[in-house]
């Protein structure tokens, strides 16, 4: 399909390469982040933390679009989404 007009807010709304960081000590394994991730970048794993809670894990780094829903819904403030520069598409995410 040929687009002859591009949306005015395309640059602003474009997804950014992003990375999800999970604080394993704080997580209580409720599963909210994995359940409500819109792109399926997070899933519950079999890994346990020191307290015996099952942790979520990032299944595919490239899938994260940086919407920040996991960060917002986490009851334990254990998820942080770090977004990179929107101009760099090739998965360049700050450390």
């Amino acid at each position: 399909m040929r687009l002859w007009r591009k949306p005015f807010d395309q640059d602003e709304k474009a997804t950014r390469p992003s990375r999800v960081v999970i604080n394993k000590d704080r997580c209580k394994g409720c599963g909210y982040c994995a359940e409500f991730c819109p792109t399926g970048a997070l899933a519950m794993s079999q890994e346990m933390n020191a307290k015996g809670y099952l942790l979520p894990a990032v299944t595919d780094d490239g899938k994260c679009v940086g919407c920040g829903l996991c960060e917002a819904i986490c009851p334990d403030f254990a998820v942080i989404v770090i977004s990179g520069d929107k101009d760099k598409k090739d998965g360049e995410v700050p450390v």
Binding site: R26, C74, F77
Partner: peptide, 13 residues
């Protein structure tokens, strides 16, 4: 942190 609220508590969000 970690806080005392249970897993899945609504206060955190």
């Amino acid at each position: 942190m970690p806080h005392i609220w249970c897993a899945g508590c609504g206060i955190g969000p």
